[in-house]
Design a protein around this nucleic acid. Structure first.
Length: 485
RNA sequence: CGGGCCGUGGCGCAGCCUGGCUAGCGCGCUUGCUUGGGGUGCAAGAGGUCGCGAGUUCAAAUCUCGCCGGCCCGACCA
């Protein structure tokens, strides 16, 4: 079995390691759904915790809305329903009776939240409303891709309402950067923060921001989105407030989300042929201690020392496993923890104990080094921080190495087309395209798409002077064109 | 819905072209002993409507037809 996360075959192993993406018998299980196993869920929980903390720091509160939405709600926003209609799962029978009005299983919650916002918002004093929901959503895609596009997925969706367009835009941009920061600082996955073109933006949004990451095979992955909804949903659901001046105004809304797709992105950013590689900040287990002993006389000392080291590491804030299983050899255990992506493996045998040390192996580099036991907890905690940074830098290096610049669409085509031949190959092209409303349609011809027009600091450290078409306006930035998932 | 590939114990596959005895192999699993610095070794064992249906034949996992399902590449999309 090929275990190569750099190409399409990667699914073959990660479904065993992290999550079972089993497309089981359709009679039993929905096609393209996902089953998240404990190892995968533990990673998701850590991501959730980090995101949740940041949301609360920016004043957002968690809420929950129904998963069944009256079909008529979706029809209220024309562009929104048009964008989602083909991928809706609809409940037509319930309680043994045909329903008068079908319910759709939420593909996202703008509509039902808009409905409630209209009831809850009367005055400018009610604003802003900063809500977030952790939920599952369903999108009946024509084609599913394990992790990256499952028919049901877990996510968080933020929904906010504001009294002014500027404030809503600030919110959308703020959340874009929250996502960018989490991707980079927590997942060690470098991203390009940008704005979507009109063709690529969320159905119903005035403007969509996104973070785009590059996988090891060079394909782009949209890893998170933040939308300025304008007054589109406000008008569709009659979400009005009375301003200080006593006038009735429609609210300005935003929505933003990241999903379990991030786990797919995480895997495809760092993992190698040996299995998962987890950045320390997301690893449920930071270090696995493998005790080695040949004779029963050694066993006691080795295990005792192992648990003392474990205690030291735990004292330094690290989750540690001592793998004292009798039925497996040390070699087996090394491979086991390596496959699960545990950042550090600690080998401890009689020889080490005699020398007052242990041997520490780093998952990402494969390097082994002896380390004295004195104060090892603090030193390894530092080491993990270093590893976190180095993973990000390594990924940044790959992003840079696979990014090229172009001036015209012809050039873009030349760069991307040879990669078409190599299956799964891809590149980011930073293009300075002249004002061209047909840009999206043209790049589609060579199976690429305009991922975004970068905003803020240039991810490659260069100021862009190119042009691209965004929602009908010319923006003084270059665009990122790539083949994508 | 178009193009390509595939369906054989839990997982991965061989066998099919050229029909033939009791359908094999690796991993995993169970039991026992053994072993331990990178997947220990040995022994015994459990586990199968060969995707479904029809046809050809003395005989079908193998050939023919139909159906179902899956994967990959497109269209759609987080």
């Amino acid at each position: 079995m090929s275990i190569t996360p750099r190409n399409e075959d990667f699914a073959a192993w990660y479904q065993d390691v992290v999550l079972q993406g089993d497309m089981a018998e359709p009679a039993e299980v929905v096609k393209g759904c996902m089953v998240i196993r404990p190892n995968g869920y533990a990673v998701w929980e850590r991501l959730q915790a980090d995101l949740d903390r940041r949301f609360k720091e920016t004043g957002h509160k968690n809420v929950y809305f129904p998963m069944f939405i009256p079909e008529s709600f979706l029809r209220k926003e024309a562009e929104h329903v048009e964008g989602f209609s083909p991928e809706l799962a609809v409940v037509t029978i319930a309680g043994g009776k045909k329903l008068e009005e079908p319910y759709v299983v939420r593909p996202t919650s703008e509509t039902i939240i808009g409905h409630f916002f209209a009831k809850w918002i009367q005055s400018y004093r009610d604003l802003p409303l900063l809500y977030n929901q952790w939920a599952n959503v369903v999108r009946w895609e024509l084609r599913t891709r394990m992790f990256l596009r499952t028919s049901e997925f877990l996510w968080q969706e933020g929904h906010t309402a504001h009294a002014s367009e500027e404030e809503a835009r600030e919110e959308a941009v703020r959340m874009l950067h929250v996502y960018g920061d989490v991707a980079e600082q927590v997942m060690a996955m470098p991203v390009i923060r940008g704005v979507k073109t009109r063709a690529e933006k969320f159905a119903g949004a005035a403007r969509s921001f996104c973070i785009e990451a590059m996988m090891q095979n060079g394909l782009a992955l949209q890893a998170g989105t933040s939308h300025e909804l304008g007054q589109n949903f406000g008008k569709a659901f009659n979400v009005q407030y009375q301003s200080k001046e006593g006038k009735l105004e429609y609210v300005w809304q935003t929505s933003w989300g990241v999903s379990t797709r991030l786990i797919g992105g995480l895997i495809m950013t760092h993992s190698d042929d040996k299995g998962l590689v987890l950045p320390p900040k997301l690893a449920p287990v930071k270090a696995a201690i493998v005790p080695i002993y040949r004779k029963d006389t050694d066993k006691g000392t080795v295990l005792e020392t192992a648990s003392r080291i474990a205690g030291d590491l735990r004292g330094a804030g690290m989750e540690v496993e001592v793998d004292a299983r009798e039925e497996h050899s040390p070699g087996h255990k090394f491979f086991y923890w390596e496959r699960l992506g545990v950042p550090l493996t600690i080998e401890l045998g009689p020889r080490d104990i005699a020398a007052g040390q242990c041997v520490v192996k780093r998952r990402d580099l494969g390097t082994k080094e002896p380390m004295g036991l004195e104060g090892i907890g603090a030193r390894l905690a530092e080491g993990l921080e270093r590893m976190q940074g180095e993973l990000l830098e390594a990924a940044r290096g790959r992003l840079r190495a696979n990014t090229v610049e172009a001036e015209t669409l012809e050039e873009v085509k030349e760069i991307l087309t040879p990669a078409t031949a190599e299956k799964g190959g891809g590149k980011f092209v930073m293009a300075y395209i002249k004002d061209d409303p047909e840009c999206d349609a043209k790049v589609k011809e060579f199976r690429a798409s305009v991922r975004c027009i970068p905003v803020g600091d240039d991810p490659l450290g260069r100021e862009g002077e190119g042009r691209c078409v965004v929602t009908g306006e010319t923006v003084g930035k270059r665009s990122v064109i790539a083949k994508a998932y």
